[in-house]
Design a protein around this nucleic acid. Sequence first.
DNA 1: TCAGTATATAACCATATGCTTATATACGCA
DNA 2: TGCGTATATAAGCATATGGTTATATACTGA
Lengths: 115, 115
Amino acid sequence: MNTTVTIDLQRASQLLKLLGDPTRLTMMKLLKSHECCVCEFVEIFKMSQPAISQHLRKLRDIELVKEERRGQWIFFSINEHHEDYPFIKSILEHLPDQNESIAELEAQGLRVCCQ
Amino acid sequence: MNTTVTIDLQRASQLLKLLGDPTRLTMMKLLKSHECCVCEFVEIFKMSQPAISQHLRKLRDIELVKEERRGQWIFFSINEHHEDYPFIKSILEHLPDQNESIAELEAQGLRVCCQ
DNA sequence: TCAGTATATAACCATATGCTTATATACGCA
DNA sequence: TGCGTATATAAGCATATGGTTATATACTGA
């Protein structure tokens, strides 16, 4: 049974705009199946740390992701309790898995959550 | 049976970026159930004609919409044969109907396709 | 306490975006 | 043909966006 939840149009465009950035879209897809911390994203995307941080701030500000500090590291995870999560999920489901990125990180010994 | 088609991530973010503008998102939702011409959108959105034209150009350039000239008027409709239409449709389905906009236009005698 | 590492924030910059006014182009009709 | 209407395009502008370098803040361990 597929019941699609209705979203306010302004809200939808706001969410779509956020996901319209390839980096943020990929982040969300990765976070759908894994937790990741900033330094892992820095490696995965080959981007500067502040750039990654800015992207994550946007996702966190709207509460699409949650953060949890573990010592030096801050782990991000997707907020499945978010009111608009079903909408986000329906979008992410169309995307190819990004698990190779994580696997590669592990192969290089750069995966943080294993520490 | 709900089979979601997989889209290239770059492609998806491009599409999401387009729909991340409230005007274009609303246009797509309207076009899902009606044809509309430029002057109707000008009335519906209370926007300048060139602004409307620019938005439509972006949708047409990527072939999400088709156009058809009928005399002085150019009518736009959604391109249901577009490769990515199922993805677009899955997004639009979450939005509230925008039929009141059209109904209001008709009440004001500004609906063009009735001419 | 201090040095090293992780991350957020500040400030800046180049480019993109969505709007405007002006003008070009297309159509209909007398 | 010329005028009126519809629409596309050009040019310009203010603001937004996504990146950078620099610095501030937080944590860890010796």
